[in-house]
Design a protein around this nucleic acid. Structure first.
Lengths: 151, 151
DNA sequence: TATTGTTATACTCTATAACTATA
DNA sequence: TATAGTTATAGAGTATAACAATA
């Protein structure tokens, strides 16, 4: 792709910076997680399931901020790898209860470890204090940002 | 989409934070730029052309970090709105020289003003110092990050 | 009637491969 | 032979609409 060093007119733009920081992290994440057979989105699903014990597909989608139709294929993939199990809820038979298998728990532990190491490397150009500052700033933008809790 | 508040297990992950900060800024950007008839990528092209006077499509693509095949449609769109002009380079007739029209310069000024205001609003949850800190941190990740100047 | 999961479909963004004209 | 622009195409990732089962 013959990538130049990005010019100052771009690197002073928040949109450019967020996009390219995101793209670069996505690459590193893919590289780090590949040996564990999951991608970043799948790992996020595992994390949410681990935190909540079990969830319906819709509830999991809500936590992750993705559409329920997107969740179907995600769970299909994770179930295919035997990292999660689906079963019909006996209380409300419209719902699928999704939970980690024991293989899923092991995989989660290993993949999370790889992710943490990848994040450390990614943040290596920054001091420890600057890294923490960055994460805190992003968190307040994402959590308290414009127009939360709509639609 | 019935979006819950994101749980702590996600908001402590750099990947989640960068992705959602990026997505949210993209939305705000679209909203802010819509009245000016350009999107964020198109505006970035105008900015790069303004900074360099004129560029070949390939050189512009290099500055922006996008593929030359992607650039074609981008320039098509901008040319259709009469914001840029293409002409064959007399020195190397394989190249298209792309430059801003005077309409393009005016549009650039107005859209940039809207973008700056949007960024201010987006960063409003942060103090002035934290905002500057954030931009500086992102810049060093994007510019000095892992595996620069490859491919 | 409304909700959950599902499927079919479409849209956006992007890249790869192959063509053309030029060098 | 290599490069710049173009076109066709394909692959992610995501969403909307419509349907079946269930409430």
């Amino acid at each position: 792709m013959t990538r130049d060093a990005p010019p100052e007119v771009l690197t002073s733009r928040l949109g450019y910076l967020l996009k390219h920081a995101y793209l670069r992290l996505t690459e590193e994440s893919a590289r780090a997680l590949a040996p564990h057979g999951v991608d970043g989105r799948e790992l996020a699903v595992l994390v949410v399931l681990d935190a909540h014990g079990e969830l319906s597909q819709l509830d999991a989608a809500g936590k992750l901020g993705i559409d329920r139709t997107t969740m179907v294929a995600l769970i299909d993939a994770l179930e295919g790898k035997e990292l999660v199990e689906r079963r019909r809820s006996p209380r409300d038979r419209r719902k699928n209860i999704v939970q980690l298998t024991s293989t899923g728990r092991d995989r989660l532990r290993d993949a999370e470890s790889a992710r943490r190491e990848m994040e450390r490397d990614f943040l290596a150009p920054l001091s420890r204090a600057d890294s923490e500052h960055l994460v805190r700033a992003l968190k307040s933008l994402v959590v308290n940002g414009p127009s939360r809790s709509e639609s």
